[in-house]
Design a protein around this nucleic acid. Sequence first.
DNA 1: TTGAAAGCGCTAACAC
DNA 2: GTGTTAGCGCTTTCAA
Lengths: 337, 337
Amino acid sequence: MGRRTGTRRVGIADVALKAGVSHATVSRVMNGNFTVDPAIAQRVRDAAAELNYQPNPVGRSLALGKTDTIGIVVPDLANPTFQAILRGLSMAAAQDGYRVLIADSSEVSSEEAILAGEARRRCDGLVLCAPRMGDAELEELAPSLHPMVLINRSTTETRVPSLEVDYSQGVQELAEHLVGLGHTSIAFLAGPARSASNRARMAGLDKFRAAHPGVELRMLEGGSSFETGHEAVDEVLASGATGVLAFNDLVAMGLLSGLHERGVRVPEDISLTGFDDIPFARYTTPPLTTAAVPITELGERAWHSLRALIRNAEAPDEETTFQPRLEIRGSTGPAGT
Amino acid sequence: MGRRTGTRRVGIADVALKAGVSHATVSRVMNGNFTVDPAIAQRVRDAAAELNYQPNPVGRSLALGKTDTIGIVVPDLANPTFQAILRGLSMAAAQDGYRVLIADSSEVSSEEAILAGEARRRCDGLVLCAPRMGDAELEELAPSLHPMVLINRSTTETRVPSLEVDYSQGVQELAEHLVGLGHTSIAFLAGPARSASNRARMAGLDKFRAAHPGVELRMLEGGSSFETGHEAVDEVLASGATGVLAFNDLVAMGLLSGLHERGVRVPEDISLTGFDDIPFARYTTPPLTTAAVPITELGERAWHSLRALIRNAEAPDEETTFQPRLEIRGSTGPAGT
DNA sequence: TTGAAAGCGCTAACAC
DNA sequence: GTGTTAGCGCTTTCAA
């Protein structure tokens, strides 16, 4: 049995009573059903306005079997990349009258499945953003989460569209750019081990290595934050590399700041690249050379895919790969000055 | 009458049937009601596990009159300040089993009321973040949105707690800091006109002006983004000011980058301050002198206030003001070199 | 301890 | 064109 919390909320029954009609008629009017006599419709609208009545979405949801809400699960809301995806998703969904519910797994991969399930049950669909869980678990979970779209991850489940960024290609272009500038000793400051996008970058660098046997390429352990980059200064300097590929812009910015504190000049002494092209990247000193990913658009596209799934119940079987665009700025320069 | 979307979802009835008990008993077991015979309870749990049953939150919400969800309305999800508030709110609410629904008004103040109302109806409570709407409208809206907490805005409605940052005090300290460094010509690069926090800064600067008749203080129109700051370079240079107070860190960073492009040295030629101390502020070159606001904590506190309102239905009548902390870094230095 | 039944607020089929 | 009624999936009172 329901509960009253504080002031009684006005429901459809109150309006019906006031207008002297049935619930059904009120419902029809509120939903713009034109089979209602105009005079009566007006009476209902007046009553509704007078009582300041607004239909209860929970009641509607139960009756209609939909919530007009979608969920998004992200590993870390502090990460500008995920913030931008969220923003793109939220804006696009809002255009179609959908709201978004957020779930932050705080990089705890064991929480993801539970969070995703809970979010999914409250919503009409789900966006799973760069999930850290293992492939097997993702594969097993996917059917129960449908409709869902995946960002920076994929599954064999055919009904699940995947939006992916070609990190492999991007990092290769960045590395080629450094080689083009004469760098022969390069270091990669890696990201979180569980991150699929980090694995993709690794794969890209393997290809790069095969194509450039003469170039020395070192892998350095890292993470995905400012702090990681800032703390890596010593390791980077010790590596002797003149060109550094940071996991992403955040890491690059932390490193840049650390190098600056040490009096190491960028790009004269060390060339440095980021990844993502977050809004801040162009405002560092020097501005960051990076691989630009249309992150906000990614969120927008995620909604479009999800919308199709929700509407059709048939999968568009979309699998889209976004190509990063090399953005050359001041943080990279000729080697060996 | 309800609708079936795709695959039939398993409901309480299926479990009841399988376990050979009534709906009511299943409900009791699922809610940890111990008045159920242990053997039967186990049978129910087994059936639930086998069917992979999870209670439908919409059904629960309707019966219980609560959604375990709160809403947040922000003027612009692209703003790091609001992102940090959202994050603090989301993390804190998650601790108590609440999720958050987001609504971005895109700085369109006329949308705020509608968005807020819609969000509120779907949720158990609302956080209204730096609303751009007028005082009168806010005042009128407040009762219908209860329980709600306000960030960087206040109302006379006693049941609405307000969490505010003392921008007036912060900007005064920043200005004093510049004066202490010998600056006698200062410019304030203002924020959005509708922003209450901008008005608070203005008020603070009025006080500052009264206290320092000898200091020349110019007001420059601006906004709240990078771009605003970047575009303001000419105006700032034309003002002849040697000390510049930017509306926030974002604006300061844009301006910093613009000054750098012009070959203007910071802090040698111009000293520059931001506001907020977003995570990026310490990583600019030079690092930004700013007034640090515990933004994430603000979100966290917002949840605590809201939680109290939701639980008590009585208002804690909280009115908290956060004092910014002066964070002196490299972007400010002695005047007149 | 358990089940039957009412009710949360709404939509929609069906009958008038 | 409008009202009656069933039903969405759940919780909870009440009676057994």
